[in-house]
Amino acid sequence: MATPAEIAERVQAQFGTAVLETVLEGRLPHLVVEAGRLQEVCAFLRESPELKFDFLSAVAGVDLGEQLQAVYLLYSYAHHHAFTLKVNAPRDNPVVPTVSGIWPAADWHERETFDLMGIRFSGHPDLRRILLPEDWVGHPLRKDYKYPESYDGITLRRDEEDWPDPGAEALYK
């Protein structure tokens, strides 16, 4: 078992400038790494005998405004320690390399993150929408997402004239 500080130190020693930010205080110690070298860092975390992060819990997409962020929540069954990796991508062209070759579990997590947050994972074998229909427009978990007026001819907004709000009075009379 290694402490977050030791894990961060090992990655720092191996990759130096690819580590953009180290956060060790708080409940979620993590590193922010350069998107271009994500695959190398992940392979190192997975293969290095002292770290051996064999389990990818989840990939989460976060909307930071000008940037989108992919968060990788990792755990090691071999050593029973956890760590988190983050990668930022510019909002106008959010591309992050895939890690599905390193953890097969990433396949579906990345598809979900693409579907809902719109981060594109380059090199992913099958990057399709997974939860929403194929012809859906937009990525709902982005903060600036606008709800569509209709989908496939079905109105998604309540028309007050046709379906007036009955109000609490009518419901409890």
Partner: peptide, 20 residues
């Protein structure tokens, strides 16, 4: 201000909430 990833053992295994 902060973030947490908290996981528990549900009948179908790890259920984790990552909350910011």
């Amino acid at each position: 201000k902060g973030e947490v990833y908290c996981r528990t053992e549900a009948p179908r295994g790890e259920v984790g909430f990552y909350v910011i």
